[in-house]
Amino acid sequence: MTGSAWAVASALLVLAALDGAFAGFRSSAGRTGLIRHRRGDVVAAARGCRTVLLLLVPVLGGVLADVLGGAVLGGAVLGGDVLGGAARVAPYLRAGQVMLAVYLPYAAVVLAALAGHALLDWRRRFLATALVLGPGTLIRPVVVLAGAAAGAWAAHDVLVGALALLAAVAVLAVQPVADRCWYGPRRRSRPA
């Protein structure tokens, strides 16, 4: 894999981990009624982060099997890398670059609003929620699926497209999984 392929893969993984952390936070937020809940927020974010990485294992496994399998096949049968691993990296790189083009502006706006939320007084904090974080949360599924669909389209490869869409589903599944495992009403009604 080339340096740019590693960079794109790492950036997508970091964005997925961040989104997972925020999904875990959203799942836990407002559940306890406590005023001081920073520790609970950190635990929830860590759970979300772990969950998304776990849900992405099949996707990462599929990508590695495809690329490394191609490299092994190319090395063993064709005696080189041209039709093997390097050739299989290209559609992933195209898909990843397009996905980043969709996700990075969204992530930049959300992170800027979160910085504002952390630093501003409560009135302007509400403003950050009402103007950016609220609508951002509402359109998040659309952005996630649009990025994956655009990546799949750009890849011109059925397997790469399928893995991109599977990754989107994994990212969107984090909050329901966190609700079910830790924070949903049925979990909370059980005695501690």
Partner: peptide, 11 residues
């Protein structure tokens, strides 16, 4: 604002 806030922050 209430609609956006409650859609985003409540479940």
């Amino acid at each position: 604002g209430a609609w956006v806030f409650h859609r985003a922050r409540t479940r």
